[in-house]
Design a protein around this nucleic acid. Structure first.
Lengths: 402, 402
DNA sequence: TGGCTTTGTGTCTCCCATAAACAAACTGCG
DNA sequence: CGCAGTTTGTTTATGGGAGACACAAAGCCA
């Protein structure tokens, strides 16, 4: 056995952290990069120019812009607009979508949402990958990898979808392998990664959206059906030892509530999803539009006018608050962001939810947990791209061709 | 601003990791230290000799022992028996105890358990620190720091005890500051750290006991009263953004259960603690011995013979299983260890608890979570010492005098 | 225009860790 | 017993990342 370059696989050690700072928008100039990395200006300069040589960022030599501060203005750092992209894909109950995402979480191209839903996993993945491959060919830019968001827990390291029941897939479908097969077939020579859609949304929000700066970010969101959770710890997705953490859908929030397919009653999954709100308001779901859209419309148009809608929203909010309080006691996050229906419930009555969490989370007094809405468009897609970008962020030299 | 040695505060970079490997018993010889660190033999040799110079470990030059393998036998690494120690202290409902703990979690000296309980925090801390200081003077060995375990959540970074209700202390007592004051008064010139007793027990079990090797370790335990939880992620205690994570006592495990002081009903705290078992078995707590000891005796002597005791144990086990299943869904640990009464319940009927967690934790099929008992004596004390040792493990050169 | 401040750059140096060759210690076999 | 084979410890030389330092550049402000 010979020992060869264990030392971070050679290459500048600060390269990855530096790229991550630019990626997350925390290093607009070389000066703040210097202080953020805690290195000398000489090192930061070398690192920045190396990232520039890799074609990942640009270093503005002649800014000319007003700095507002004294002294020599710092060179501005920006994502190279011609740099590589990641292929992002998402499948959900109502269709699928593909996109290209560059560094910084910027969407460079998106396919229109497709609403034909093939029952067979292989078929739908083939469709979404083909759409993404078309985008790639159209831009001609290099691809660092591909990410896929699915509405199911994804077991690691197997890469299997454990409960894709909203897709009517078989439990345990080898989604990562299928995804990679489709990528190879479509001629995309890049590694494919898979993750749960809410997890990936949380990751995207942490890096580019409402979760920025949170050290312990909890995200709870409804998709089109069901409820998902995610936790981002110190910038990394915490998905447990097997990728199954934060499956919060089956927290009990109403012991006398409606039965859940898990066998229990009153689970967060069935008590706080769009269908629950519609039913509580005495509405029958219509045929057009997703349940999520219908619930949103209901809140938007009739929350202020119809007492029944208001009562229903309050009831659902109360159950959500109970679930969040339980999670706060277990996870002690420093920020909570809500997506899907939960976001609209929060915005309909922020104080009610805040109050609930404070009173039933034991340590209400020792600092309220800030609640916020998810703000990023297509956050699951952006999060899927983060998966593909991660190796580059960890070690640009090793992950990139040259 | 001048940049001065940000580079890990100078000193050999692999020093901390190497010491941690020896500390946790994962590096019995220089050869495995080499592979575990992923460095060359030259580096490992230099690191080991440097740790030896610091007086932390010993390197056996002439082992002579049979290795069982071919080739030159490797030098053995061991904790220096004359090295520094940490002062560990624990206070609980029934008394307090102090000890000296060396590297490797070894107890070098312990005061007898004291059962006089002063009501005033300052007073009882003064007593336990004085006892520890006596031990220190008796050995004459250097002290790297002091750690204190308390039966309460400890808020970070304030260092205040948020719910020390089993000690009848005021909520929010500045326990870390008080501890440090007492240390200074007793002439102990070392920094003092505080933590929750179950958290510290989990940390100790992870490093030296039943939790070794687990990447995501969940620990749930009863103290003398109440229930606590802890999570060790990748070798570090996860205590949330403010030190309040894993306050699992108020998970609802029986909606129709007995009222809890938190205002809810059927909390894990009141449904699975020693008093709950005694009451369920129709026994009235006696005056002598702690409730935990009485519950343990009951299980030991009458579980096999008295159907009422068996029924009571099963009922409490069922509630515990429900709580654990909920935690598994949220945290997805790869091992669970149980302490206090929960340990005895597990050992009374392992299959019942295992089955409960499998059936109600959604992913029973995708790999059962191993359940184990806490095995370390005085694990909270050892864990308290870990707090004091941590700076040394992180950077031996910076933390030690010379 | 000349201080003052902040930032970028080139040069030198330090020092940690690798690489490579060698020495040491043990097993096993003929 | 001696020698091959294997694994481990040690020495020396080399390389490379990052700090220290000095100096230049580029803006403010009087």
């Amino acid at each position: 056995m010979t020992h060869t370059r264990t030392r971070l696989e050679r290459g500048r050690n600060a390269l990855g952290p530096a790229l991550e700072l630019v990626h997350t928008g925390r290093a607009p100039t070389r000066a703040v990069l210097t202080t953020a990395l805690g290195v000398t200006r000489a090192t930061a300069g070398a690192v920045a120019s190396e990232l520039q040589t890799l074609g990942l960022i640009t270093v503005d030599s002649r800014p000319g812009g007003a700095t507002g501060s004294h002294g020599r203005p710092s060179h501005r750092l920006a994502i190279d607009p011609g740099g590589p992209v990641a292929l992002a894909a998402q499948v959900h109950a109502d269709g699928f979508r593909a996109a290209l995402v560059g560094l910084g979480g910027q969407l460079h191209a998106t396919t229109p949402a497709c609403t034909t839903v093939a029952a067979d996993p292989r078929e739908i993945l083939g469709q979404v990958v083909a759409a993404g491959a078309d985008l790639l060919r159209a831009t001609g830019r290099p691809c660092v990898g591909a990410g896929l968001a699915v509405p199911s827990a994804v077991a690691e390291p197997e890469g299997t979808a454990l409960n894709p029941l909203h897709l009517a897939w078989p439990a345990g479908a080898p989604v990562r392998d299928l995804f990679n097969d489709c990528l190879a077939e479509a001629g995309v020579d890049a590694p494919g990664y898979c993750g749960n859609d809410v997890n990936l949304a949380a990751l995207a929000e942490h890096r580019h959206g409402a979760g920025q700066g949170a050290a312990h970010l909890l995200c709870v969101a409804t998709g089109h059906r069901g409820v998902g959770g995610a936790l981002v710890l110190d910038g990394r997705l915490h998905s447990g030892s097997a990728g199954l953490a934060l499956e919060v859908g089956h927290l009990t929030v109403d012991p006398a509530g409606r039965p859940c397919h898990c066998g229990s009653r009153g689970c967060l999954d069935v008590e706080t999803d769009p269908l629950a709100l519609l039913e509580a308001a005495g509405r029958t779901p219509g045929p057009e539009g997703s349940l999520l859209d219908q619930a949103r419309e209901l809140l938007r148009t009739e929350y202020a006018t119809d007492p029944a809608v208001r009562r229903a929203a309050h009831a659902v909010t109360d159950r959500l608050g109970l679930g969040l309080a339980g999670l706060v006691n277990i996870l002690n996050p420093d920020r909570i962001i809500l997506g899907g229906l939960h976001r609209w419930l929060l915005e309909a009555d922020p104080e009610r939810l805040r109050g609930l969490i404070e009173t039933s989370s034991l340590w209400g007094r020792s600092g309220t947990v800030p609640l916020a809405s998810c703000t990023l468009d297509y956050n699951s897609l952006v999060g899927a791209a983060e998966l593909a970008w991660q190796p580059v962020l960890d070690d640009p030299l090793a992950a990139l061709p040259t």
